[in-house]
Design a protein around this nucleic acid. Sequence first.
RNA 1: CGGAGUGUGGCUCAGUCUGGUAGAGCACCGCGUUCGGGACGCGGGGGUCGCAGGUUCGAAUCCUGCCACUCCGACCA
Length: 439
Amino acid sequence: MRLSRFFLPVLRETPAEAQIASHRLMLRAGMIRQEAAGIYAWLPLGHRVLKKVEQIVREEMDRAGAVELLMPTLQLADLWRESGRYDAYGPEMLRIKDRSERELLYGPTNEDMITEIFRAYVKSYRALPLNLYHIQWKFRDEVRPRFGVMRGREFLMKDAYSFDISEQAARASYNRMFVAYLRTFHRMGLKAFPMKAESGPIGGDLSHEFIVLAETGESAVYLDRRLLEIEAPSEDVDYQADLEPIVDKWTSLYAATEDVHDPVRYERETAAGDRLSARGIEVGQTFFFGDKYSKPMKATVTSQDGSDVAIQGGSYGVGISRLVGAIIEASHDDAGIIWPAPVAPFGAAIVNLRPGDGAVDAACERAYQALTAMGREPLLDDTEERPGAKFATMDLIGLPWQLVVGPRGLTDGVVELKRRSGGERQTLPLERALEVLGG
RNA sequence: CGGAGUGUGGCUCAGUCUGGUAGAGCACCGCGUUCGGGACGCGGGGGUCGCAGGUUCGAAUCCUGCCACUCCGACCA
C-alpha cells in the first residue's frame, strides 16, 4: 500500500475524550472513529488489525476442531422467550420491532440460536462431539461504555458452542477450547492467564476468564507469579489427545479475579514472594453450562442405549475488537503503538525521504516489490511530508520495521533499517536490508 | 441507573460570569523558501456557536425544555 493512496487520518493532538493509552492511540493513529457512545467505525488501519486478530482466532479454532458458521445479528424475541432469557436479560438487550411489529433483538450472544440450529439437525450421539462457532458483531447496551473498543456497546466477538453427550465428554471439549485460547493469545504476543471465574449452574470449576495483565485493566486480579513462566502449548499440540495435563498445569497455581478471590486460599497456596496482585483485561471466557439451554429448548440426541438425552453444552467467547485495544495496552510507548508482528496492520514501512529523487524513488520501488513478494505487506510512505512528520507518523502507527530510504550523507543504495520495538537501527545496503526482512 | 461535567470550523481550545453580530493554534488550499524527528513567510477557504422555545432593539453569552457526549461509582467479551 502506498501511503499517498491510503486513508490514514492521524491526529496530532490527543482527542479530549480518550483516557487510556489504547483508546488515545487508536484515535490518533486513525484506526477508529466514534460514531456514538460505545459504537465505532473501524477505519482502514484499524480494520486491518481487526482482521488479523480475527484470522488468528479463526485459525486456532479450526485447529482445535471447531467449525465456523455465521449467525445473524438480529434474532427473534420468541427464540429467547423459549429459552427463558427474554425477560431475564434486562435493558442491556437492544430490542427492536420490524414493520409488522414483530419483536426482534440485536443479539448480545447466541446460545439460544445455536441451540435452535443444533436441535433442528442433530439427532444422534454419533454426531458428537460438535463445536460450532462464529465471529459476529454483538450489541450489549452497556450502562457505561468506555475505554474505546475495550468496552464498546457494539463489539466483535468470537463465540463457540460445544455439544456433548456427557459431562465427561463436555470436559474434553472444554479443554480443547482452553488450550486453543492459550495458543490464540500467545500468537498475538499476549500473555493471557486463565483465572477461576464464577462457576456455572452445574458447579465445579469449569469456567475461566482469560486475563491479560495491564495497569488499565478493569478488574483486580490475584495470581501466583510462577504462572508467568509457563509456556503456551506449541503449534503441534494434539487435540485428539487428553489435554487434561496441560489444563492442570495452567490451573494448579492460584489465579483469580476479585469477584471470586479467596484470600485465605491464596495465602495458603501461594508463598508470599510468589503473590502478585495486578489489574487485568478479560479477553476471553470459557464456560460450561450443562443442559441450561438444551433442556428448556429440548435439544436432545439419541444415546447409545436408545434414550433421548439433553446435550451438555459449553460456550467460549473471545472479544476480538477488545483484543485490539488490549494488545495496544500491552505494547506501546510514548511515541505510539508497537505492534507484535502477527497482528501488525502492515509488516514494514518504507520511508521515502526524498520523493521525486529518481534514484531514491527507484530504490523504494525495488524495496516495495521485494517486500510485497515476500508477503511482508509493506506500507510505502511516498508522501511529501517532512522527515520529522514522517517518522512521527510511523512511530505512532507502530509497524514492526521501518526501512528508511534516501538518508542524508549516505551513498546511494544504502538504507537505514529500524526496529520499532527496542529502537535498534542499522545502516546497510538495500539488498542486505531486504535479506534481513526476508529472514 | 446515581453523582459530576462538557457541547463554539476537521482537531485542541479561548470567548459565556459582565448580551453588541465569532477568534487563536494546528489541519486544509495557493505561491515561495525549506527538507533526518511533527519547518517558515505571504495570501486564502471553511462555523445554523448541540437542538427547540423564550426574554431583549440585539443572544455563543440570560431563562426553560430536550438531545448528545465525557468522567467517577454498581454490571459485562
